[in-house]
């Protein structure tokens, strides 16, 4: 464990807590894409299949449980909670996210480190996570008024993978044989997808005005 990875995990944790806080306290998921939340639930479900078979540390297992629990409960809130589900703007959240799942699965079947069931699904979860934010970014462009919590959620979610990139650089420099091109490229693509969001987020923060993404 290094400071970059810890910062990344804490930023990721903060992002899901911000979202859960928003949904649980104000009972609203306005501006949040259910498609992205469903994709993230699939990402964690396929990423952490080894939660029962391999144990690394209490921290590792605890964080996996938190990410699994939070992503599935957010999906549950947005789909089934009587108050929250009414605030979900179904008409705007129309990204065909299943069109993201299949290519990622095919790619994982083609490009992976080892051709085993767990490894292919784990690689699939990496590819899917890289694009999981797309429905949310599309939704943000459509809903003009981005409330602070949703903006913070996306910002933290984008930032965590940025910290992971620093972690990979650090581990590459300090650990022999630590080379994982698939993880690195997927993580880089993921972070780059946030580039324009980050730009407009900083602009709104610097000029102290509402976050508005260009249509």
């Amino acid at each position: 464990m290094n400071i970059f990875r810890l910062a990344g995990d804490m930023t990721h944790l903060a992002s899901v807590l911000v979202l859960l806080l928003k949904i649980h306290t104000i009972k609203s998921c306005a501006g949040v894409s259910l498609k992205t939340q469903e994709l993230y639930a699939i990402v964690f479900a396929t990423r952490y299949l080894d939660i029962f078979t391999s144990f690394y540390s209490i921290y590792n297992t605890l964080m996996k449980l938190i990410f699994l629990g939070s992503s599935f409960s957010i999906v549950w809130y947005m789909r089934y909670h009587k108050t929250v589900r009414r605030t979900y703007d179904r008409e705007q959240d129309t990204f065909r996210h299943w069109f993201l799942v299949l290519p990622c699965l095919l790619l994982a079947l083609l490009i992976h480190e080892k051709f085993t069931f767990l490894e292919v699904l784990w690689t699939f979860s990496l590819y899917l996570e890289a694009v999981a934010i797309l429905p949310q970014l599309v939704l943000l462009q459509r809903t003009r008024n981005i409330d602070n919590l949703t903006g913070q959620y996306v910002f933290l979610l984008g930032g965590y993978r940025g910290f992971y990139i620093l972690n990979w650089i650090y581990r590459y420099l300090t650990e022999p044989h630590f080379v994982h091109w698939i993880t690195w490229i997927a993580g880089l693509v993921q972070t780059l997808l946030y580039a324009d969001f980050f730009y407009y987020y900083f602009q709104s923060w610097k000029n102290n005005k509402k976050l508005q993404l260009p249509a």
Binding site: D50, F67, N167, T183
Partner: peptide, 10 residues
């Protein structure tokens, strides 16, 4: 198995 090392990440 080098890939196992990577699995200690979330």
């Amino acid at each position: 198995r080098p890939s196992a090392i990577n699995k200690d990440e979330l």
